[in-house]
């Protein structure tokens, strides 16, 4: 993951200066040169977590926002009118979600533009990155998009976990402390249950072995036993790893085979050619 972003000095000055510029109608000229954060939503939606994160980041860095909704091109097995209908439905959803995003950004006096594109996220970002030179990095909440971009465009990508609604220090700390206590209690509880079960079996090993190896219907005994043990010991093991800080990497979207669909290679960009225009009928 390309995450190396150096702290940059805020180029656009304070909010007061920004207000003056807006009033003076000079904002457009300035905005052209302002650095931007490209924010890519999940399908046609921008989650609250993603919006909050992007706006906070843009506010602190003094950047603009460019919201991008990437739609999947219509499946060719459907009719063109149905494909158009799907595209329109996607666009309407994206515009609606982006309106909320823009409004939130406006409250912080951050310029936020929105674009809708259809196709492969990686290729689209690469194109936009070439068209709009001042995109500094990409923020997304989809692991799949993050990896696609990483394979196509040479631009830093942040993949955020928008599940965490509270990002602030104290609240987060309290929640963690509380859940850690709970986790500890659960681990101890399941651990004691597991130890008890093992002790019960091994202290009566003779009787257990005699009963369990009779064959026939007594087959239910070892099967039931391993189910009970896998519940108690499985829960203990799960809590133990969590308590030791070993837990699964949180991703918004599981890495499934969708990325394995053979993707068309990025077509080589056309080189500009020199034409000599003689008249309407002759181009050299």
């Amino acid at each position: 993951m390309k995450m190396q972003i150096k702290n940059r000095s805020l180029e656009c000055g304070s909010k007061k200066e920004k207000d003056v510029l807006i009033k003076a109608g000079k904002v457009n000229a300035v905005e052209k040169d302002r650095r931007k954060i490209l924010v890519i939503g999940q399908e046609d939606r921008f989650s609250h977590g993603l919006m909050d994160y992007a706006i906070t980041l843009a506010d602190r860095l003094g950047y603009d926002l460019l919201a991008l909704s990437v739609g999947i091109p219509g499946d060719e097995q459907y009719s063109q009118s149905y494909q158009r209908y799907q595209d329109e439905r996607f666009s309407l959803g994206a515009i609606e979600s982006a309106a909320v995003f823009k409004q939130r950004a406006r409250q912080k006096k951050i310029v936020c533009e929105h674009e809708i594109r259809f196709g492969d996220a990686g290729q689209i970002v690469e194109k936009i990155h070439h068209q709009i030179k001042r995109i500094e990095f990409v923020v997304t909440e989809s692991k799949a998009i993050e990896e696609t971009i990483a394979s196509y465009a040479n631009i830093p990508v942040f993949c955020i976990n928008s599940n965490g609604q509270n990002r602030g220090g104290n609240i987060m700390a309290n929640v963690e402390t509380k859940s850690k206590k709970m986790l500890f209690a659960q681990t101890v509880g399941y651990g004691l249950l597991t130890v008890g079960l093992y002790a019960a079996v091994f202290s009566n090993a003779g009787v257990v072995m005699k009963l369990f190896t009779q064959g026939g219907w007594s087959a239910a005994l070892p099967i039931a036993t391993v189910f009970v043990f896998s519940f108690a010991h499985g829960a203990f093991a799960s809590n133990l790893w969590s308590l030791l800080g070993i837990s699964a990497r949180k991703t918004e979207q599981p890495r499934v085979a969708e990325r394995k669909v053979v993707q068309p290679r990025v077509s080589a960009r056309k080189r500009p050619r020199v034409y000599a225009h003689i008249n309407n009928y002759h181009n050299i």
């Binding site: 369990f212 190896t213 790893w241």
Partner: peptide
Amino acid sequence: WAAHGMVDIRLTLIILGGSLLGVQL
């Protein structure tokens, strides 16, 4: 196998003790 009385539950439970920790990791 259990219907034939072949399962040594002690061995099963000892291996299970380790493997349930390992499989989750």
